[in-house]
Nucleic acid binder design. Structure first.
Lengths: 330, 330
DNA sequence: CCTGTCCAATACTTTGTATTTATTGGGTGA
DNA sequence: TCACCCAATAAATACAAAGTATTGGACAGG
């Protein structure tokens, strides 16, 4: 059924619709305009559908069916690509299991989608995610006990390849009712006596030193501070009034807390994938490439960026209430 | 990118692997055996993969890669079919509005994203979501008054196609201050006199019977029980001290309530999309496909089933909390 | 050991069609 | 009107798929 439709047709028509013209599409596809003309006609006749109309000025405008075609053809071609990639990887014996790690400082959501991304490439491969301290994870990457890890920078080790995934602004986390919360942005000097909560130095020494450097450059001297061994603890300490903390922008926050940018500086939290330079498992670069691609295409507004969903602290109860029993075991 | 691979190749190789022989496959495909021979070789050379080996008696046996190929090629061809069907239907204007239904037992969040996903395929089509009882919805699906519905299993009807979306563990919902709440997990025997709140039997008879069966197998006999006509009512009854209820794991809970798993059993709540086998609305299979894909790339089941995170009844703060500072500007 | 039979693989030819080149026709704007 | 931008058409070409005939290999039975 529908065996007259080959991938070629989807490629061609997709290019025609996207480029809004046969000529431009032909150039992109490295073929001739008349070829597209006849192939496009054949496909549309076979399916008895019309994918585009011509405007007065000779351009191509997708019909409603054409708009749907763009979405569907993209999925179809993408799927072919994934299928073949998967088959090649399976052939190479890279199926067994892939071990991925992340540190507490990394956005859990990012790590989770990074892990699950592997399934879109290799549905049959098992993924084993692990969590651990930075130092420990680096050790395991070097020992090939994990294939790749998502960590925060900086990291300098000649044996390790670093591929940056995301860069988030570093903002101040403070109580909503703090006087300084009325300002739209804080000055570095505002931190001087208020910044009193840092991530535990031993958990990520490089980041700690770098942060102290940056603060010093901005004229902020941090003397005594509370140590948090987990990001959630930082929020708790801020809430309890022990001072400000620095968190990644966009972080879901406790009800009583808010964040403010720091004026005049450009401090960021950089999240990256690391893997062993030599013993790199071959799927990892592919995985990263695909992840970055999804990230860049997803941030365009097809799916609203999950943002504040949890920010309010309360769950949308009414519509996601408990569901009763239904069925049972395998 | 992989443009040498056409649908033809997938069809051919699929037939070869399934029929376990070139000759038989050639017959099925109405083509010649040598043709398959060369096409199969080309594809495998291009992808540098080997999909089958020959046994002693001259037959064809799929390699591990070949086994994966069968699955993947089937999906690919099925998707082509769905895409073209959908396009034809759209062209004919059969998709002006799509009517989707869900039952109270279904996660509202899931249903909502399922509905909104239809926009990515057909932006102009209106989506009309409806809510109703299971029996009523099944009736409407059969009568083509709704195009598809998200319901909980079990469901047996030869005229209806069932596609599972999610499987959640069934856990006990009880008051935080109940003595048994101190245990990490409950024994089935703990339910004996405590389980006293069930979803209304008439609202979903199949699930009710199945649940009683399961309970009986575990040695639990439920005699008198309160009936809740809506999941939110179940929580209220538990809160008021009328007994335990069974809810889907991960359910947002009332402050005073908590949940505990049941040791030794593997009971689940299965959520599925259903639609009419014959009168299948053309966009629905694609919708489901896309939904599943998004589901697998966003929230994965790879992760340890979010155990304790939700158990307290509070939001899963621990794993989606803020991350501290690390590095700095360019 | 030979031989008949099942296969798939190979060699070669034929057919089909995708593609190219060259051209026409149809709008638009100067 | 002309020139210029398109896509559509026609005819020629090229290339790949499908067909035909054959070979080669692996058994099983005599």
């Amino acid at each position: 059924m529908h065996d007259w439709a080959e991938f070629r047709h989807f490629r061609y028509l997709l290019a025609i619709l996207e480029k809004q013209g046969f000529r431009a599409a032909a150039e992109e596809l490295h073929t001739s305009q008349p070829n597209l003309s006849v192939q496009a006609r054949r496909f549309q006749e076979n399916a008895s559908i019309k994918l585009f109309r011509k405007t007065r000025d000779g351009r191509i405008r997708a019909t409603q069916t054409g708009e749907a075609f763009i979405q569907l053809a993209q999925s179809l071609l993408e799927m072919r690509h994934e299928v073949i990639d998967a088959l090649i990887a399976i052939e190479r014996g890279e199926i067994s299991t892939i071990r991925l790690g992340s540190t507490p400082l990394v956005d859990g959501e990012l790590f989770r989608s990074f892990c699950s991304m592997h399934r879109t490439i290799l549905p049959m491969a098992a993924v084993r995610p692990t969590h651990g301290d930075r130092a420990q994870l680096v050790e395991e990457v070097l020992a090939s006990q994990v294939d790749a890890a998502v960590v925060t920078l900086p990291l300098k080790d000649p044996r390790i390849h670093v591929e940056e995934l995301r860069r988030d602004r570093l903002v101040v986390c403070l109580r909503k009712d703090h006087p300084l919360a009325s300002k739209a942005a804080l000055q570095p000097s505002d931190l001087q006596d208020n910044l009193a909560i840092l991530y535990h130095p031993q958990r990520h020494p490089d980041a700690h030193h770098r942060l102290l450097e940056l603060l010093a450059e901005a004229g902020v001297l941090v003397e005594a501070y509370s140590r948090a061994s987990h990001p959630s603890e930082m929020q708790m300490l801020v809430r309890e009034g022990y001072g400000f903390a620095l968190v990644r922008e966009g972080t879901p926050l406790d009800d009583a807390l808010t964040t403010r940018p720091i004026a005049g500086v450009d401090w960021t939290v950089d999240t990256a994938v690391i893997y062993h330079r030599q013993w790199r498992p071959k799927t990892v670069p592919l995985l990263i490439r695909r992840f970055k691609k999804l990230q860049s295409t997803q941030s365009s507004e097809i799916f609203p960026r999950r943002q504040e969903a949890f920010l309010g602290g309360s769950i949308p109860v009414l519509d996601s209430l408990p569901n009763g029993p239904s069925k049972a075991p395998v």
